[in-house]
């Protein structure tokens, strides 16, 4: 078996208690992998540490222990190989849409000529259907358009991995729907490896190949990995017509409503991060994956 592109091994985040003594464990014993070209969503209640995991993947935040291995290398900071789409669009408000993208493109391809940079910026603005908004400042754009610029900025650097923190949660349902469709089209056609946080079960079912379910914090864990067994050619309109849709949806919702809480209150040993349960609803018995032995690097980080 070939190695996955991303391997998260024994990740934990702890903060000192405000009282000064002891530590608060946000999450612990997190193990998962992402294959090249895979779209992975993570679902869990607020505060369980999803953003912290994503920031660790981005290299913006350091975990308290554990390693993240990408392409066989433990990551040690942010990189242009990993693009982040932030929850708030995080566009520079003093720059136009085009300038925001240009900042990213010139950083990624410093050797490019002005014309090449311009072509790249325009290509990605066109890809998110913002050809007419080159010179508009973020304040002049609607919420959906701002997030499109954010997507264009992230994709224009042609990242190895795309990281998204609830990218559509601030948008109205219609805008969110059309952006999901576009994102799906782009990610499918470019086989973009993607890790995304979402609160929206349907969004996860539409976009993800597999869905990580996190128990409630503190001391959160990845309880199980649900494989999305809906057909590859699914679309937003036809999602609910597949026989697997309701079982999957109910499974996710049941997890969010009851099991995420129950599992969190169970004894610490109830879940083993290295043997995270993989759930396929089209089969009868769930299989488990055993993650590879921890890399020697782990000892250094602990």
């Amino acid at each position: 078996m070939r190695n996955p592109l991303i391997s998260v091994e024994n990740l934990a985040k702890r903060f000192p208690e405000p009282s000064g003594k002891g530590e608060l464990t946000v999450f612990d014993d997190i193990w998962f992998t992402i294959e090249e070209g895979e779209f992975v969503c993570i679902i869990g209640h607020s505060g369980c540490g999803k953003s912290t995991i994503l920031n660790a993947l981005a290299g913006l935040d350091e975990a308290s222990s554990g390693v993240i291995i990408i392409d066989g290398q433990a990551i040690s900071g942010p990189s242009l190989d990993r693009a982040v789409i932030f929850q708030g669009h995080a566009l520079m408000p003093w720059m136009s849409a085009l300038e925001n993208i240009r900042l990213a493109v010139t950083s990624r391809f410093p050797e490019w000529s002005k014309a090449q940079v311009q072509d790249q910026c325009e290509k990605y603005l066109r890809m998110v259907h913002l050809d007419g908004a080159h010179d508009k400042k973020p304040a002049q754009l609607s919420g959906g358009m701002k997030q499109r610029v954010g997507i264009a900025r992230a994709l224009a650097i042609e990242p190895q991995i795309l990281l998204m923190d609830e990218p559509f949660s601030a948008l109205d349902a219609l805008t969110r729907g059309s952006l999901q469709d576009e994102l799906m089209g782009i990610c499918k056609s470019t086989k973009q490896t993607t890790f995304m946080i979402t609160h929206d079960v349907d969004e996860a079912l539409l976009l993800a190949d597999k869905i990580l379910l996190m128990t409630n914090g503190p001391n959160a864990r990845v309880a199980e990995i649900v494989v999305n067994t809906l057909p590859e050619n699914r679309s937003r309109d036809s999602l609910h017509k597949h026989e697997q849709y309701y079982p999957l949806r109910n499974h996710l919702i049941e997890f969010l409503v009851t099991r995420s809480r129950e599992l969190a209150s169970e004894a610490e040993g109830a879940l083993d991060g290295r043997q995270t349960k993989v759930v396929r609803l089209d089969e009868t018995k769930p299989e488990t994956v055993t993650n590879s032995e921890p890399a020697p690097l782990r000892a250094v980080n602990e």
Binding site: A58, L60, P78, S79, L80, V84, L103, A104, S107
Partner: peptide, 21 residues
């Protein structure tokens, strides 16, 4: 913090971060 995070993920470096962001 958001802007600084963008600068970090774009690997702008200290000088360009200061000047551009």
């Amino acid at each position: 913090r958001e802007y600084l995070n963008v600068a970090k993920t774009l690997e702008l470096g200290p000088f360009r971060t200061a000047w551009k962001v």
